[in-house]
Design a protein around this nucleic acid. Structure first.
Lengths: 186, 186
DNA sequence: GTTTTCTTTTGATGTAGATCAAAAAATCAT
DNA sequence: ATGATTTTTTGATCTACATCAAAAGAAAAC
C-alpha cells in the first residue's frame, strides 16, 4: 500500500483523510503465476496497481495471442476500453509470475472522488496516459521493426530482461522469428 | 454555440449558470481553407469543437505528411499529446475548407470546472475517448489494408465523400497507390 | 475553352516481414 | 543427470504493400 501512496503522491499531495480513505477502499490481492486477473468477456470494474511481479495484457485474435503490453512493479493497469465503456473486455490480463496487486473498483473510485486530491490525481493520471498513448502509438506506427526494437529497449528495458521473445515480438507487431533475426544481427 | 451545448448535453445536463459560463469562456472563430489552427512546435492550449467544416490533423515525418485523422462537424478535436503534456506539438491541425470552430482554452476549462456538470462532462468525454482510442487502435493493428478500408467506410462515411484519396490512405497507413488499387477491385 | 495544376490510376519492380518447417538451445520434471 | 517440454534460432519460400515512373482524369486559372 505504501508503494501506491508514493505513486499517487507524485501526482497530488494526499491528505491524511484521503490516505485513510484509500486504505479503506483499495484491496490488496496476490495472484499466482499464469492466473487470469481479467478474462475476455468480463466487464472490467477495476483499476489495478502492480506492487510487485509482472502482468501481461493480451487479446485472442483468430486463436492467436496478441500481447498488448507487459507491466512491471509500480505501474497502473486496466482494460481501458472495458473499464471506461463498461462493455465486455477483449483484453485478457494475466499474472506472468507471482504478483502482488492492489485493486480499486469503480465504486471505490467514486467514493474516493470526494477527496479533491484524489480527483486531481486521477485527472493528472488520465491526462498523462492520454498524452502517452497518443504519442507512442503515432511514433510506433512510423517505425520499422528495427526501430521499434531500439525504442522499446529504451522505454522498457525490463521487458527484455524478463519477458519471453514471443511476447515482445507481439508487442512490436511482428513475429517471433523476425525478432530473433533482428537480435542476431546486432 | 447551440451545437456545442447540444453536444455537451449528450454527456451531462447543463444548468443555466453553466451555459452562461460556457458562453462567456468559449470563443467562436472562423478559419479559412488551408489555414493552420495549430502548427508543429506550438504548445496546444485549447480544445476545439467543430461547428461546421472539415479539419485535418497530420504530422510531418521525413518531409512527408502523415494524416492522423480528419474531423467533421459536431466533433471535438485537439492535439492530445501536446494539450495534456503541454509540450510542443508534433501535430499540425488545418482547416481543409472554410470552417467554424469554438475554442475552449485550458484556463477556461479550469474556470468551467467550478460547475460540477462541466466536470462530469469532461470526465465522461475523456473516458469515452480513452475507450475509443484503445479499442480502435488495437482493432486497426490486426487488420490488413482491405479490412481497414471496410472499417473506415463504416465508422466515417463522410471521409470517403469529402477527403482526398491520399489523406484517407495515410490514415489507413498505406500509400495512395495501394488504396487506389483496393478501390478499383471492388 | 485552353492551359496549368492537382489528383487519381495503372504498370513494373523491389522489399520487409510473414509463414511453414525443422533444428538447436534452454528450462523443467522426475 | 536424463528425458520431456518449452522457447529460440535458422533456413527456404511467399506475399502484401512500397516505391518509382508515367499516363489519365479532374479541377482551377486565365
Amino acid at each position: 500500500m505504501e508503494k501506491l501512496i508514493k505513486f499517487i503522491s507524485r501526482y497530488a499531495q494526499l491528505s491524511p483523510a484521503a490516505i485513510a480513505g484509500l486504505k479503506c477502499f483499495a484491496e490488496e490481492e496476490k495472484s499466482k503465476k499464469n492466473v487470469l486477473i481479467l478474462n475476455a468477456g468480463q466487464v472490467c470494474h477495476k483499476i489495478w496497481f502492480l506492487t510487485s511481479g509482472m502482468v501481461r495484457k493480451y487479446q485472442l485474435q483468430d486463436g492467436k495471442e496478441r500481447t498488448c503490453w507487459i507491466h512491471f512493479e509500480n505501474e497502473i493497469f486496466t482494460s481501458l476500453d472495458s473499464y471506461f465503456s463498461q462493455t465486455p473486455s477483449k483484453d485478457i490480463i494475466e499474472a506472468c509470475e507471482e504478483s502482488e496487486i492492489i485493486s480499486i473498483s469503480k465504486e471505490a473510485s467514486k467514493e474516493l472522488a470526494r477527496f479533491p486530491e484524489f480527483l486531481s490525481f486521477t485527472n493528472a493520471l488520465m491526462g498523462e496516459q492520454f498524452a502517452s498513448i497518443d504519442r507512442v502509438s503515432k511514433e510506433f506506427s512510423f517505425m520499422d521493426a528495427k526501430q521499434r526494437y531500439n525504442y522499446l529497449q529504451k522505454v522498457s528495458p525490463k521487458l527484455f530482461q524478463k519477458a519471453k521473445l514471443g511476447h515482445i515480438a507481439s508487442i512490436m507487431g511482428i513475429t517471433q522469428e523476425t525478432l530473433s533475426r533482428i537480435r542476431s544481427k546486432e
